[in-house]
Design a binder for these strands. Structure first.
Lengths: 245, 245
DNA sequence: TCTCCAAAGTTGTATGAAAGATTTTGCCAT
DNA sequence: ATGGCAAAATCTTTCATACAACTTTGGAGA
């Protein structure tokens, strides 16, 4: 009963779109390279039998897509193929040890500030989450996978406490890319060394937690910095020991 | 002395681009959701003091980017943001004022630490780049596009000085997403206010630069923090003042 | 109350004109 | 011829106006 007048489900034929496609084909068919000049607008109007308005809007669209660029008084030119929209190089996984260290350093900058902000803004619920993560960590000292999960939960709880979505997203995605799920203490041969290692982490976590609880922002930053610097140092030493290069 | 006449060093200020930025800000700052209707074209013409041609081209650009969608006879509507592929949510462009402020805060955490690392690691070449950026900034106080470029160059030079690829990548990509070219001071009506605004930025840059030059890492962090906090405050005040809701 | 239709509102397209900027052309002095 | 300089031609950008196509709205009439 609604087939009368209410909605045009089929896209209305827009001249601008036709011309846009036409221009794209013209570029491809004529084998135009970046830097080549398009015919002047008036000529395109005649060629497509449309007004300048239409041609101009089609060109504006292609400019927005990075396909064309125009120089006032000179002409419209084909531009380099648009940027790799595939996504941020920035978030790509590190490719070698040096890049891993770079990424760890970057992570530090984020999490240090996150700790400071968390100290200023944390709610009781946030503190509860951190405590849960810490006790979970203590409960699973023997299980690398679960301990790693608990460690992530702790850092994520801090990111949450910033009340800033961006920090939470970063910690989540970075964790996936940077820290394999069984990494924490997975390479110890001596059980005693491993226990000491994990207890160190635990006490560092506790210092961070206490600073956040007491709303001491600068102490929270300092504690987080020390915590992550320790992690970086441990990774560097480990990679040196395990890398023949 | 390359002030001759052969090279178009100055990017031509195109009205269409200004309106495009203006529309983007209008959408974000007014908290418009997908499906909301934009004011009619004629009203936008009056609001931006431009002809309908310009408004239509700006809209055409935003349509090409998938940000808007227009229905003939009805109006122009904000469209559902195109679902980005499996990429990182984290690096996505902020969608409303709150998210912009979140992103600014996140950026602070990165750049503050970058300033500290830069102070420890900067080379003479790094310092030279920063000086170039500052003098470029001073030289183009009237041109929003060029001043914004210079500002980006300065921050990028600092990121470079960390000798950590990740910082450089972040600053580059964040700049593209968060700071439209020609944004710096683009919304001042009083020329005197704008000049004061830009000179403030300049002197903040100088303080950061001096701390980095003298390898005073903590001072560099503090100066950068103050610089970015100023920017955040200015944005917040501006967005409050320009939100007629 | 429901249906239908006309008027108002909005986007799409066309056209003419002027302004801003670049490239080419033509001329003059050397 | 040659180099430089100014005018002309070319081209993009912007403005203003008009009309066509389509949607929405509100009221008249059943």
């Amino acid at each position: 009963m609604a087939e009368t007048t209410h909605m045009a489900d089929t896209a209305a034929p827009r001249l601008t779109d036709r011309v846009k496609d036409g221009l794209n084909r013209m570029i491809v068919d004529a084998g135009m390279r970046p830097g080549d000049k398009l015919p002047p607008a008036d000529q395109l109007c005649q060629q497509f039998s449309v007004s300048r308005t239409v041609v101009r809007e089609a060109i504006a669209s292609l400019k927005a897509e990075g396909r064309l660029r125009s120089l006032r008084g000179s002409g419209v030119y084909v531009s380099e193929p648009p940027k790799p929209v595939g996504g941020s190089m920035f978030m790509e996984a590190p490719q070698d040890i040096g890049e891993v260290l770079d990424f760890i350093e970057f992570r530090m900058s984020v999490e240090i500030e996150a700790a400071g902000l968390a100290a200023e803004r944390r709610t009781e619920t946030n503190l509860l989450r951190m405590e849960q993560a810490m006790s979970q960590f203590a409960r699973h000292l023997e299980d690398n996978t679960l301990a790693t999960d608990a460690d992530r939960s702790f850092h994520r709880a801090i990111a949450d406490a910033t009340n800033n979505k961006r920090f939470r997203l970063f910690v989540d995605e970075m964790g996936e890319r940077l820290i394999p799920r069984r990494a924490l203490g997975a390479s110890f041969t001596d059980e005693k060394d491993k226990a000491e290692f994990l207890e160190n982490i635990q006490s560092e976590h506790r210092r961070i937690f206490e600073a956040i609880t007491d709303r001491r922002a600068d102490d929270a930053r300092a504690a987080m910095r020390q915590h992550l610097e320790g992690g970086r140092r441990r990774y560097r030493e480990w990679s040196l020991a395990h890398d023949g290069a």
